[in-house]
Amino acid sequence: MATRHGAGYEFPGLPLKRVDAGTNLLLTGPALEGARELLLGLLLGEDGVLIITADTSARKILSAFEGVGGRIDRDRVRVVSCTQERDDELGDFVASVGSPGDLTGIGIEYSGQYEQVYARGYDTVRTGIYTLTPLLVYSEDVRPVFRFVNTVTSRIRTADGLGICAINPSAHDEQVINSIAQPFDARIDVREVKGTVELRVTGLPGQPTEWTAVPALS
């Protein structure tokens, strides 16, 4: 299990060193090549956990979270689901927005769930967004998505949280990816080669810059 020590977040079992509190990471890679599992693995620990899921139902994302070793404690783990699937019956630890295009709703529900977790004593929160791709696809205008990303990453930065935001690079123009990447401290690329998930990091000193196997996910 990952744990947070002092002024940073650690990721035992993953080939990544501790990152500072307030760090935002952009995770790029195809959905079927380990991106979802790696994102969920980065959320493991005893901190508060907020997951915004946009192309996988809340039920599936929670199941996948358990699959990588996560424990679903409803005081600590919260989900904002913006898929078309109905997740209402799961309880109030899952908030449903209904469409990845409803950025107003996603933002408010995220803030609301954040405050619920904070009020229960979790002042360090790991946020995972899986993925930004539907938000971009459903928005006719990319500017509100920039505003959404800036708003969420700012909250994470100033609240000493940890943010991991996934995006499928093959679904967007390179220029859009580069602009979206701006508020993030670093980029983690992930891929799968012959059944082995690999990652590399750009933008953070001391992290693996060459493709490195992730045995925990292979």
């Binding site: 469409s99 409803d102 107003t104 933002g107 803030s111 405050e115 928005s139 205008d141 959404f148």
Partner: peptide, 11 residues
């Protein structure tokens, strides 16, 4: 709700 693109903070 306002429009779908009015991203704000909420407390």
């Amino acid at each position: 709700r306002g429009g779908r693109e009015q991203v704000i903070e909420y407390v």
